[in-house]
Each structure stands twice: as C-alpha cells, then as structure tokens.
Write a protein that binds this DNA or RNA. Structure first.
Length: 419
RNA sequence: GUGGACGUCGCCUAGCGGUCAAGGCGCCAGGCUGUGGCCCUGGAGAUCGCGGGUUCGAAUCCCGCCGUCCACCCCA
C-alpha cells in the first residue's frame, strides 16, 4: 500500500487496542510516584538546544548526531527534548525550587526525541517515565530512587530483570582514573577496534563496555574504576549497596557500566530484561551532582532515572503479562423506524448521564445487522426499540451473554443495567 | 552513520517471467416477514511499497528511493 502520508520514520500511532498497556504503565507509575512522595512536573517538549549541549555533553552521541534541532521564526536555536533530566533541572532553578524543603522529588511522563535508526524497541519518538530527586547527596536517596524503579517493574508484572550497578566517581577521582586508563591503553591501541581508538580520544570511559571480541582481552586487564574511587565516593557507594541489601533489592555490580551522558557522577545503574535484544536496557539512571551547577545554579546534588515506556510494554508482551482491560460498552441501543430513533437517542443520553457506557446504532440498518454490531462491540446488553416498544413506552433488554431478554418500562432500564 | 533480510487487499499469507493476482481473518449484505455469537451464500476491498530499467511480456529479474525488521553504533 502506498499512502501519501505516513507517520514519520521511527514514530508510531497508538491505537485504542494498545491503550490498555499504556494506561497500565502510566497509572502504575503515577501511583507509585505518589506513594513515594513525588510530585508531577511537565516541561515543554522543546527547550533551548544549548541546555542539552551543555549538560548531556558536547561529545555525546545524543548531541553529536541525535538531536532534533531547529530554529524558530525568531531565530532561536531549539531542540526537541532528547532526555528528561536537564529540563527538570532547568525548571528547578527557574522556579526557585531550591527554596523548598530539600530534596525536591519530581516525576514526569514525557515524549523524548532522538534521531537515531529505528528498530524494535527503539524509536525516534519514545516516552519515558522519569524521576528526579534534587538537593540531597545521601546514598539513601539513590536507594530510594532505585527502589521506586524496581518496584515499578514488580508492580507492572515484569520478572527476571537484572539491576546493574556501578559507581563512576566524581570530579575528583574520575579524571585521575581516566588518566590511568589512558596510560593503560596507550601502548595497546594497535590491538583494539577502530571504535575503541576513537573512544580513546573522545570518551575513554566507554572503552570499558566495547562488545568487540577482539577488545575483550584488553578490557579484562584494564584497571577497574571502582578500585580508583576516592574515599568519599567509595564510602557513598558502599552505603548505597548496604541500603539496597537492606531493602532486599538484588543487583549486579557491573564495573564496566558507564552511561551515555556526561553529567553522571558516582552512582549509575541500568535495568535489563531477561531476553537481551540489541538495545535492551528498559531503564537507567544515576546521580548527577554537578548538573545544576553547570546550569548556573548553586552546587546541588541530585539523582534520578528514566525508563522507556515502549520498552516496558515490549517486555510486558514478551512475558505475556495480562494488563487490565478497559470496560467496554455496557449498552448498545438498536432501533427500528424513525420514531424509535428519537427514543433511542433519548434513552442513550439518559443512560450516559447515569454513567452507563452506551452506543447507539447508526445508519438505520436491519435489526440483524444492529445486533451483529452490538455483539462485535462487546456490549453487555442490547436495548431494542421498535415500533412496539415506542407504542407502549417500553424497551426490550437483551443480555448478550446468554440471550436472556425481557421487555420492561423505559424507566426501569437504568436500574436493570446496573446490578 | 555502517552491514544484512524483507515489503502482495485493513491484518496474515499463496503466487516467484506469460489468461481477469488466489485464500484465510476482518468488513458489508442476505439465509421469508423485529434479534447477535456457530454455519452457509454473496459482495466490497490490491496502481502487487514508490520510481526507473531488462524483456514481445514482470508481483515475479536488475538498480535507486522509502519503510519495516536484524546486527553494529548508541540508548529507553
């Protein structure tokens, strides 16, 4: 089929039959966030492009090749939001949220845009549920955020997930580690892949999670980041692990886990589903103690996560998790004749005012066709209004599940439909 | 951005150089006069993703583009 217009590459329409999944995820996320004391925040879909360049990092893939950047008619450089954290921090500063009791706990569900090549579970527009806890450096807050993410998956019905955890140090110890790492790699560049030679220059930390077979021996011998944490970072990390243990949240230490944004410090984590696709993380996050300062605010520690709703739904389907289905129509009103049509419209109107989901037949089709419609719609009752009913002021109520049917006075219909 | 597979009615699929492109699901209608789900019958619905090329002749072969999927990159 060739349509003149189709949804742009990497975007999708979410049809009614998909919505139960979305409702399930959104409702559960909102409920949990509330349970943890987080308040909802919505930020614009677009922001000054510089906001992301500054925070996410000049050299990151997101900034280098994945941002939707455009100029508006006033000449402003804007970007469709490629991640959720920076806008929330911007709002935190803009509205003086530092003057509120710290930490400030915020959550959002928002569309995210990245110009990369779509495949299963990866889109140019996707949606994230995210949480940011700003203004406190306690590892207890890291644990809280991780617990929230972990319980979300549990509540949703996902199983077999693994939480990967690491600490990548802070402004003090990371540069020292990167120097050690560079030193280690400097005489081995001829033994690693071309990408790694590039990473050596641009983003040395990423050397650690190269998947190339040939690079594995080099990685195996590389100095571990966690052996080079400063005392404060090591202590912070140790406390966090203690809290997670106390909360009974299982995690795997993943010394090679680094994340794609420059703003992370100390804690980083990802959650992976049991079946590994190419891009499998369904959620990830970490601490970003320097981000607010980078935006011109006071030094403000913070921690948060983002989790992809499309990927959650993908895994709900893979694991055949049954999600609550919305209630369908209760009543389908069929009628015969122009007279009855008016009665049908009035009856439907009355039912809806009583909170009973009601659909009226259209097109003056045969009663048989209307009944077929009622069945196809999944209605619980068919209400039949023909000349006979109009004349006697009655309605025939047919329960579609078993065909039980009776004709009763119009006034009694409402009470009959709600047991 | 790199490599690969695929693209036939709304959905799933057959056809794989030669009459009007076939079937299932779904949709619409009918199966005697006011009634669904099963069954039967009929109908609508496809420029065979788009554009070029090869050929007497292409859905079937070749090229380009678009899209989907897979791997890489990266990420949720």
């Amino acid at each position: 089929m060739s349509l003149r217009y189709q949804a742009p590459r990497g975007t999708q329409d979410i049809l009614p039959e998909e919505q139960p999944y979305w409702d399930w995820v959104r409702d559960t996320a909102a409920r949990l966030a509330g349970l943890f004391g987080y308040g909802r925040i919505d930020t614009p879909v677009f922001e000054p492009a510089a906001l992301f360049v500054r925070t996410t990092g000049e050299a990151t893939d997101i900034v280098q090749k994945e941002m939707y950047v455009f100029q508006d008619r006033g000449g402003q450089e804007l970007a469709l939001r490629p991640e959720g954290t920076a806008p929330v921090c911007r709002a935190y500063l803009e509205h003086g949220l530092h003057a509120r009791p710290q930490p400030v706990r915020l959550w959002y569900i928002a569309p995210i845009f990245r110009y990369d090549r779509p495949q299963a579970g990866r889109y140019r527009q996707h949606h994230q549920f995210g949480v940011e806890a700003i203004g406190d450096e306690s590892p207890a807050l890291d644990a809280e955020v991780i617990e929230l993410l972990w319980s979300l998956y549990g509540e949703l019905g996902l199983s077999g997930l693994t939480l990967r955890l690491n600490s990548i140090g802070d402004r003090n110890c990371r540069p020292a580690y990167v120097a050690v790492l560079r030193e280690y790699y400097s005489d081995k560049l001829d033994r690693v892949c071309a990408d790694c030679r590039d990473r050596f220059q641009r983003n040395p930390l990423r050397l650690l999670d190269c998947k190339q077979e040939s690079c594995q021996p080099v990685i195996a011998g590389a100095p571990a980041l966690t052996d080079h944490l400063c005392a404060e970072c090591a202590e912070h990390f140790a406390q966090l692990r203690g809290y997670l243990d106390a909360l009974g949240i299982p995690y795997e230490l993943e010394p090679r886990l680094v994340r794609g944004f420059d703003y992370y410090t100390r804690t980083v984590f990802e959650v992976h589903p049991p079946v590994e696709g190419a891009q499998s993380a369904i959620g990830g996050g970490g601490r970003y103690d320097g981000l607010i300062e980078e935006l011109g605010g006071p030094p403000t520690p913070a921690v948060g996560f983002g989790t992809g709703i499309e990927r959650i739904i993908l895994n709900l389907k893979r694991q055949e998790v049954a999600v609550p289905q919305g209630r369908g129509v209760q009543a389908f009103v069929a009628y015969q004749g122009a007279q009855a049509r008016l009665s049908a419209l009035r009856l439907a109107s009355r039912l809806r005012r009583q909170g009973i989901a009601t659909v009226v037949a259209t097109g003056d089709r045969s009663l048989k066709a209307q009944m077929r419609q009622a069945d196809a719609r999944g209605a619980r009752y068919a209400l039949i209004l023909g000349p006979r009913e109009v004349e006697t002021g009655t309605v025939t109520v047919r329960r579609l599940a078993d065909g039980h049917q009776e004709t009763l006075p119009a006034e009694e219909v409402v009470s009959r439909l709600r047991p």
